[in-house]
Design a protein around this nucleic acid. Structure first.
Lengths: 218, 218
DNA sequence: TTATAAATTTAGACAAATCTAAAAATTAAA
DNA sequence: TTTAATTTTTAGATTTGTCTAAATTTATAA
């Protein structure tokens, strides 16, 4: 049986290892989970014993096959519940994260599948993040980061790659919502910030923000 | 902050104290939660310190005002999630208990209220149990136990007062469902069992079963 | 290449929730 | 009303997940 704390570690490791093979450092996990490095080492030993991760002392951890499967299941549940909260219960996209953090740990395969069907097998959550299917496969994405677009090019907002509340609220204040049209007017060299238009109204955003906005070009 | 274990103790105490004033014994709680009496004593001390219960050593516990409020909130959440699972996700009434046991601990007042509204403010769960409203008030019930009906009288099934899976499955096998019409044909004196008809088909049920079936007469 | 800084692990402790075994209090019975 | 049975509590231990402080390993820089 996998515990709630263990699930959170698996999720953190998945999030930190973009390429699911490469290993993640103890400190990175500690920062992600807002805990101490020594606690992380302790927990890594436990999940190593359960063969959920591969671990080389001082060299970091990576998800095993079964650990990756578990982690993807949690992400799937998190994102499906977010869709439920927004599309059925009328929550705003910046209000759902904390509740989904709880709901993602509910254990029932039948519930997840029924929820998926009820929601119409959505491919993306309200932040534009892809939802893995029952077999753990992610839908292919055709989006780019706004920071990667050339001057003069444009597209539509299809997601964010970070979903903390203050970031989402900042986006709201700029009228940057899912589906909004964005064009890159100017790229400022010395700090990589951007002059853009959002639905034809101009704005100035930092590279930090641009890096976390996912854009689909026509 | 109230922990998951504490919530389960409050719920058990509420369930065991029909009249919410009278006190509940240590052993009764241990049996209800399938744990040891010594563990119960330990936990009672913790929730006493938090003023969730009133406790007199060797004399049992009763819910305090705030403890009762908490316990009713948990029951409300449990029953609303059961309604969700049955009416929206097409679960059977005998499949929802274990999942609702998990969902009842999700913490978000906004979620509970939004769910309540989404479900149309239901007054009863799929087992016929009353759902307390936002203020903790239970809807009035006009049902009687089948075991209390006179020979010759009849009514409709509106609920059960026990919801373990094997009981509900037994009811299913007898075609006793919510809304089914039941008439009392004969009461057998020596064991208090009953000859009844269910939607005009005859059956014989024990007093044990009859005591747990809630009937509404016209 | 050796010294220093940074990252990681180990050792030992703590709180939560549980357990077993023994002691104390209450209830029931002779 | 004294004894026996039952219930409840206490004492001490265990597991999980965390912490601080110290030790060890790895990385960096002079």
């Amino acid at each position: 049986m996998i515990t709630l704390a263990e699930e959170n570690y698996l999720k953190a490791i998945l999030k930190l290892s973009k390429n699911s093979e490469d290993s993640v450092s103890t400190n990175a996990i500690a920062e992600e989970l807002d805990t101490k490095a020594s606690s992380v080492t302790d927990m890594i030993k436990k999940i190593t014993d359960k063969q959920l991760v591969d671990y080389v002392p001082y060299r970091g951890v990576s998800l095993s096959k079964s650990g990756l499967k578990k982690a993807i299941e949690i992400v799937r549940k998190h994102r499906l519940w977010e869709v439920f909260l927004v599309t059925k219960l009328q929550f705003k996209w910046d209000e759902v994260h904390d509740i989904a953090e709880q709901l993602e740990h509910i254990k029932s395969q039948k519930l997840v599948d029924a929820l998926d069907a009820y929601l119409g097998y959505p491919q993306h959550d309200p932040h534009g993040e892809p939802i893995p299917n029952k077999d753990g496969q992610f839908p292919k994405s055709f989006s780019k980061r706004l920071s990667e677009l050339e001057k003069g090019s444009s597209g539509q907002v299809v997601g964010v790659s970070q979903d903390n509340q203050s970031f989402l609220q900042y986006l709201n204040s700029l009228n940057i919502t899912l589906g909004a049209s964005i064009s890159v007017i100017q790229k400022i060299d010395f700090d990589d910030s951007l002059e853009i238009t959002i639905n034809n109204k101009s704005a100035h955003i930092s590279n930090d923000v641009a890096r976390n906005l996912l854009i689909k070009q026509k």
